[in-house]
Amino acid sequence: MRHRLITAAVSVLVLAVVGSGAPAHADATVHEGKVGLSVKGQGLRVQRAGAWMDGHGRGVRARLYTVYEGTRTDLTRWQDATPRSVGISRFSDVGWKLNRRFRHGTWLCVEFNRADGAPCARIHR
């Protein structure tokens, strides 16, 4: 019983330290609040990245940035998001063709100018 409690506590601690990021070894999809990020690639090379935000809005824009060893670097400029409706769901999305290699341990993140939340995917071997 005690071993299970310790294992559960360690699991919770690891999740808290890692955060909501998901590995982007080959593919990753991450959500944070109203914002989502999808990364497609293989190993340390990312082919495409896409992001979406729940709801429509005027002037919705997004950009990608990386975080490596505590340093943030803007990867793309602000890009206009396209409003979409699928059934009763409404969202705004944007996509990038990157075909770029990243260092092991780099976090690829997205931010929208009209929403809180900046989900990140960890690029690793």
Rank of each mutant, 00 (worst) to 15 (best):
R2D: 10
H3K: 13
H3Q: 13
R4G: 13
L5P: 06
L5A: 13
L5K: 13
L5E: 15
I6P: 01
T7N: 01
A8I: 06
A9R: 02
V10P: 08
A16R: 02
V17M: 11
V17A: 15
V18H: 05
G21D: 12
P23F: 12
P23K: 03
D27L: 07
D27Q: 07
A28I: 04
A28Q: 04
A28T: 05
A28K: 02
T29S: 06
T29K: 02
H31T: 14
E32W: 13
E32R: 07
G33V: 10
G33D: 09
K34P: 13
G36D: 09
L37F: 02
V39D: 11
V39L: 12
V39H: 09
Q42N: 12
R45G: 03
R45D: 05
R45Y: 02
V46H: 00
V46L: 01
V46N: 00
Q47M: 06
R48I: 03
A49G: 09
G50P: 00
M53G: 08
G55S: 07
H56E: 08
G57A: 04
G59E: 03
V60W: 04
V60S: 09
V60N: 10
A62R: 01
R63K: 14
R63L: 09
L64F: 07
T66W: 02
Y68C: 03
E69D: 10
T71S: 15
R72V: 15
D74N: 15
D74Q: 12
D74Y: 15
D74S: 14
L75S: 12
T76N: 00
T76G: 00
R77H: 12
W78I: 05
W78P: 07
Q79Y: 07
A81K: 05
T82A: 09
P83L: 00
P83D: 03
I88T: 07
I88K: 01
S89T: 04
S89F: 11
R90P: 05
F91L: 11
S92I: 05
L98E: 02
R101Q: 10
R101S: 14
H104W: 05
G105V: 06
G105P: 11
G105I: 03
T106A: 07
T106H: 07
L108D: 14
L108N: 12
C109H: 03
C109M: 05
V110M: 04
V110R: 01
E111F: 00
E111Y: 01
F112L: 09
A115N: 10
A115H: 09
A115V: 02
A115T: 04
D116E: 06
D116G: 14
D116T: 09
A118T: 12
C120I: 12
R122E: 14
I123Q: 01
I123M: 01
I123W: 00
I123G: 04
I123N: 02
H124E: 10
